[in-house]
Amino acid sequence: MTRLKADQRHSVRFSLNGKSVEGEAEPRMLLSDFLRHQLGATGTHVGCEHGVCGACTIVVDGMLTRSCLTLAAQVDGCDLKTVEGLAPSADRLGVLQQAFRRNHALQCGFCTAGILMSLDHYLASNRAPTEAEIRDLLSGHICRCTGYTPIIQAALEAAAELASSKKETSDA
């Protein structure tokens, strides 16, 4: 493993939502800060900086990751997915995002990005989750506005919709 010099900036390259990006970071720079302030990907938010609130959650190489507990230098060469990569296009929302809007599953929207990332990641491999499973998954996220139930409802609706659209596709 390369030893980085503490007082120097180092080049960091990775794939962000399918596009290659590059920037410079001191070894101590957090991934969340790098995404937001170096790359301008401000959709990922920072709420507690100690891994409890879940707002900064992103996907790194297929793994849910707290970007506030990850150094930018650690993800050099990795494949990252953030909230900016969820919508199919700039003027359309994905199935999960639409379910959130329909169910009023967000108010201030600050914690939402992390919750969406956890759900997007989970629903990709869990077609028919139960409410208890969704509640367990999301227990690592704090939302102060909604009281959670609309989020759970949105997740279950999105799961059902995704499952039926998958079914239609496979039937066709």
Binding site: T42, G43, V46, A87, Q97, R101, L106, G109, F110
Partner: peptide, 16 residues
């Protein structure tokens, strides 16, 4: 809500 599309796609405009 008119607010939601931006907030759901990482295009909110919070102070930071």
């Amino acid at each position: 809500r008119v607010e939601d599309a931006a907030l759901l796609s990482g295009r909110g405009r919070f102070i930071d």
